[in-house]
Every structure is written in C-alpha cells, then in structure tokens.
Amino acid sequence: MGLEEKAGNLGFVTTTLEAAVNWGRTNAMWPLTFGLACCAIEMMAAQASDFDLSRFGMEVNRPSPRQADLMIVAGRVSRKMAPVVRQLYDQMSDPKWVIAMGDCASSAGVFNNYAVVQGVDEIVPVDVYVAGCPPRPESLIHGIIMLHEKVKREKLAPRSKANAIRFDESGRQVDRIGSR
C-alpha cells in the first residue's frame, strides 16, 4: 500500500526514521559489564550457553561505560557503592537505559537496613524492574524484551529524563523527577 507497492519489486522498503532507529537500537543493545551480587551470577548464566542472550544481539558486554547503552543493576547497591553506580550512569552516553534486576535493586528486597540503598531508583532512573531473588535468566530476558518494546515506542525527541536528578556541590540531591 506504500511506495514499495507502486515501485514494484525494486528491493527497498519505506518506514519512518524513528522506527528504523529504534529497530537498530533494540537489536544491538550493549549492556555494561557490571555485576554487584547474586543477580550478577544469574546475569552471567543468561549470557552463557543455556540461555544465550546473543539471540537478542546483546552478548557484547562492554566494560567501559562510554561504549555501553544499557545498565543492568544486578544486585544490592550499598551506600558505599551508590556514588559509583551514579557515576557509571553519568559516564554512559545517551541514549541509555537501566534495568533494575532483582528485588534488591528494585526495592532492597529482604535488606531493609542501614547499609543498602532502598531501591536503585533513588539514584538512577529505572526503565524496567525485574522481580525475583535472584530472577531466573528467563525473567531477565523477559525484562529485556519489555525494554525492547519500550524502546520501539520511543520518540526521537531528546531524552531529558536522563538528567532529571541533579545534585548540588555537597552531593545532596536537589530535585527529583524519577521514574516512579
């Protein structure tokens, strides 16, 4: 019904730029090599032989945040680790997404205490939460597919959300337009 019908079998298709860019982004999403605790082992299992994340073009983990566009926060974030997580997030180049993997990253899980950040969304904006302690690799893959669906619906307008959390010089949070 589009142009390609009129043009016959010339070997091209038409689409919107947005759809083409988002299609590219979903099928080559590079996660940051970044594990915190138990969930990191399940994340490794998701990338290993049985579950094989490379089916989604995601087997290339990047240790450098500059080359990564997906941060999977796999595990509990302690108070000492929180500034590091935030710094890593800031170092990643736009567009970037965050998956909170597991109960600890989503809401601190069983650790309602002095040491653990009560949900990583206190420090970085989260796109997808994956429940489980730890989530099975299938759950993680499901979360990733959810993220892909989300990315496919995105507009090409600048992602202002990424810089919504600001800090003053003393490191205190000034305002917060989080994802919650």
């Binding site: 302690s78 000492k80 680790m81 590091v84 069983v110 002095y114």
Partner: peptide
C-alpha cells in the same frame, strides 16, 4: 572492600532463628 556491605549479620539479629536462615 565494603562496596557490597549489606548488614546481613545485623539484620539476622532482628529475625527469629528460622527467618534468619534466608540471610
């Protein structure tokens, strides 16, 4: 070290003996 300090030992003090097992 200490980047993964979770306060597990302290948390166990607030749980009964059966509950503390999951920690």
């Amino acid at each position: 070290i200490g980047f993964l300090h979770t306060g597990i030992e302290k948390n166990m003090e607030a749980k009964t003996y059966q509950q503390a097992l999951v920690m």
